[in-house]
Amino acid sequence: MSMSVTFTINRAARTVELDDPRVTLLDLLRERLDLAGTKKGCDRGQCGACTILLNGRRVNACLALAISHDGAEILTIEGLAEGDALHPVQAAFIEHDALQCGFCTPGQIMSAVGLIGEGEAGLDPERVREGMSGNLCRCGAYRGITEAVVAATQAMGAAGQEDAA
């Protein structure tokens, strides 16, 4: 069985011939589309390394069947920067040393972008910590991650009325 599936990946339309319905979005990106920036840490929705934005919402790509998301809009770490200009979250991660080995980093950053978009954590570090708890970092870069997300939120002017007060 082969099925033609269409996605918008990092703002570009992609049509993929799927010969196997078992392929997850994660394995589609990594093994078939050479978008290996999205990482596989557990493949079971337990670590967050594979976080992407699917139709604007952060999800674990490892638990999503590609075939089921026909027509979806996908943003991965490769599509975040505009040319050479880093996204504010990316820049903040470097500035706050919010990474060590870097393996969880693409997932952390996509999750942070999702979190900021959700607009509920604002500049409250405790809400950021909770909101980023779906992304494990075994190196223990959590302090930098929290600081980077707060700083990026501020830089993006996305803190919201309530928290800006």
Binding site: L35, A36, I77, I94, P106
Partner: peptide, 12 residues
Amino acid sequence: TRRDGPLKVTGA
């Protein structure tokens, strides 16, 4: 800052 930071935050 980390010299490999830009590679790591862009997925490269």
